[in-house]
Design a protein around this nucleic acid. Structure first.
Lengths: 219, 219
DNA sequence: TCGCGCAAGATTTGATCAAATTATTTCTGC
DNA sequence: GCAGAAATAATTTGATCAAATCTTGCGCGA
């Protein structure tokens, strides 16, 4: 443990770990999340674990049931409708704001992330695919320097993540889509309306996949 | 303390109290919020207070500074732009979804809340005005049964609240606007597009007030 | 079927330690 | 001796943990 780690409070680290567990599908929709279990799994104290759970509950990543138990919220059709609506509003806007602020180096960085995604698809590695996908979007969105919208996007991804993970595992990691080429081309061309549109299409594609799985009862 | 209260955990109650302090302007933008202070003020233990702070931080109502201290986030122009954009997207949508689901009794209830707002204006009572205004909007939005969008709206109100409070106190409680007549008329007529539009106008009006105060350096 | 008690888990408190801020003192150059 | 800077002490506040208490759900036996 080096000097920098020592300054990050345990509750922050614990929050980050638990968030990634939700986001990248270690935890499945409907799965119970217990304080004691996380104390064991994350090797943390009770206070940090409780605080991480509270934060993620506030972000919609976890659900406090009436009986004081916590679960990963299962996906439903009405939930998906709302997430789709909000994502399609917020994220293209973020992309539009971010576009003009990206340097050539940052665009190169996005391209490298996208290559990593392609590699993950070839390897059939769902976890790396999801992580790369997340990194691609939020590296882009972060450049917008729009904190409020960014927080909203993160919350929406947390709500969406577990279902997407299930779908990805279902359809097979080798058949995963990569829709980022279009966004990168728009970025290089400086066409930010096209960038926004490309992100919109990417979102719609993901939502449709989850919707289909939901209708088939696979989530 | 009756039977029902005993079942609500302290951290929930503490969260509610602290949230209302942010929402109705007991706490001003920029004001520091300390754990120890809240333990005294809210007469709660350390864990419930910490958890309430974590939740509200996740919702954007409070801001964790680098030095581990917590403040009520001050309003800025870029913040306001984002809040305006998101509110204008989410809340009219919520109104539109809620409209068809409201019973005549529920509409009567909204009208009663609005009368209460008028009374608060006459009395010059800023707190009751803000509380009535909040109740009006969220009684409407709750009917939409759209949890995700509702959470987002609540978060946005928490970010907006402290600044609005300052503005209201500034312009004088007797000069506060009540733009709900139009929304109620649209509801009675069953014209949900008009309802959505009325909510949009209401939001724009509030945002403009804060924007003007911000430009004048009053927030 | 209805209670009763047991087990798992959540809640809360208070103690203890660490970090950050503020107040105070000491030191240094003039 | 004095002003200002640096160091140090004191105080406030935050972070973490572990023990005690309370709830809830479930199974067992009447």
């Amino acid at each position: 443990m080096n000097a920098e780690d020592r300054n990050i409070p345990t509750h922050e680290v614990t929050y980050g770990r638990l968030r990634d567990m939700v986001l990248f599908g270690v935890l499945e929709p409907g799965q119970p999340v217990t304080i004691q279990g996380l104390i064991r799994d994350l090797d943390a104290g009770m206070t940090p674990v409780r605080e991480a759970i509270r934060r993620l509950t506030a972000e919609g990543a976890l659900l406090l049931q009436g009986n004081r138990r916590v679960v990963v919220p299962p996906m439903t059709e009405t939930l998906l409708d709302q997430i789709a609506f909000a994502r399609l509003t917020i994220e293209p806007k973020l992309a539009e704001l971010a576009g003009p602020r990206l340097s050539a180096e940052q665009i190169d960085g996005l391209e490298r992330i996208d290559h990593g995604i392609d590699a993950a698809i070839e390897r059939g590695d769902v976890h790396d695919y999801l992580e790369g996908n997340t990194r691609f979007h939020f590296t882009l969105y972060d450049a917008a320097e729009a904190n409020v919208l960014n927080d909203m996007a993160r919350s929406l991804w947390l709500r969406f993540g577990p279902a997407l993970r299930v779908v990805c595992a279902r359809i097979g990691a080798q058949n995963l889509p990569d829709q980022h080429e279009e966004a990168l081309a728009a970025l290089r061309a400086g066409d930010f309306a096209a960038l926004s549109k490309a992100i919109e299409k990417d979102i719609e594609q993901g939502v449709e996949q989850v919707r289909a799985a939901l209708k088939a009862g696979e989530v």
